[in-house]
């Protein structure tokens, strides 16, 4: 049960302002989700791999991390520490070795990708945004989430977005009713989730379908058949984002489009400060219909 925001920029000139705009949208959704907040931000690609990791004891865990990781993968590594998170940048072909090393060190991997970075923590959205300096972050598109936890724990790992594949992430408003069974089905295929959270199962379902050869569109279509319950999903990819609501479509969703951007939110309130919103086309996504915005 939550608030969702998303912003996809059509014009490069706005890129430096992405974090600023998303932060305002995120804070407006505080009432819908005061427990935790998170954001996935898609920046420029450099042909490198970015791994976002989290630690509750960043001072000790991140000290000397880049050197140790570089030695483990046999390639240069740079590190950018942001509060409890660190973004590690390294060559693309080192992914498997790097993830094994990080798992060994018991660091929590928030997300992996060429362009995606994920930051999420427990707390009010405004505090979370401040800790990570979200306002200063630029990029092409981003997705944010504020969480009111229903059945799973209020923890960093329980916060959204959930990422279960490279450059893919998912946020969710609603409550799935068959996630335990789906979790078992995915586990039989060797796909294991890290939390008790229903949304992570949704994310894992989508990435497993894509790994099996489905397009993102087909995977999102599949959620309508294979996932039961109430959901508005927004999924981020390297090139854009997709939106789908369950066939009953009780959980709110509103979209706005101008020449400059496409915006998504749980409520119109989140759009109030967007430039040119007065002239924007504003509408609600239809139930059981998949939408995409890609560059």
């Amino acid at each position: 049960m939550c608030g969702i925001v998303g912003l996809f920029l059509k014009k490069d000139a706005l890129r430096p302002k992405l974090g600023d705009m998303l932060t305002d949208m995120l804070i407006t959704m505080t009432d819908r989700g005061p427990d935790s907040a998170g954001i996935a931000i898609y920046g420029d690609e450099h042909g490198k791999l970015k791994i976002t990791v989290q630690s509750d004891t960043p001072d000790t865990d991140f000290a000397g991390l880049e050197g140790a990781l570089a030695a483990a993968v046999g390639a240069p590594v740079t590190i950018r520490v942001v509060d409890t998170h660190a973004v590690l940048t390294l060559p693309l072909d080192t992914e498997a070795a790097a993830l094994a090393f990080l798992e060994d060190r018991k660091l929590r991997v928030m997300g992996v990708g060429e362009s995606m970075e994920i930051f999420k923590e427990v707390g009010l959205p405004k505090d979370v945004a401040e800790r990570f300096g979200l306002r200063a972050m630029g990029g092409s598109h981003g997705i944010g989430h504020t969480r009111m936890a229903t059945e799973s724990a209020v923890t960093t790992l329980g916060a959204h977005p959930f990422s279960t594949a490279s450059d893919q992430c998912l946020v969710h408003n609603g409550s799935l009713s068959n996630h335990n069974d789906m979790r078992r089905k995915l586990a039989k295929k060797g796909i294991y989730t890290k939390t008790e959270n229903d949304t992570e199962v949704g994310a894992a379902y989508i990435s497993s379908r894509i790994a099996e050869g489905a397009t993102l569109g087909q995977a999102l279509e599949g959620t309508l058949k294979d996932l039961d319950g109430f959901f508005t999903f927004v999924t981020g990819t390297k090139n854009g984002f997709g939106v789908v609501r369950d066939p009953i479509a009780c959980k709110p969703a509103v979209m706005a489009e101008t020449e400059d951007y496409v915006a998504f939110a749980s409520e119109y309130r989140a759009f109030a400060d967007l430039p040119g919103i007065e002239g924007a086309r504003v509408w609600e996504p239809e139930p059981a219909t998949v939408y995409f915005w890609e560059r």
Binding site: D31, M148, C250
Partner: peptide, 14 residues
Amino acid sequence: CRHPDWTGPDDLEI
């Protein structure tokens, strides 16, 4: 079985 104009705790708050 459900209220006609809200679903879930986030809507209930409103």
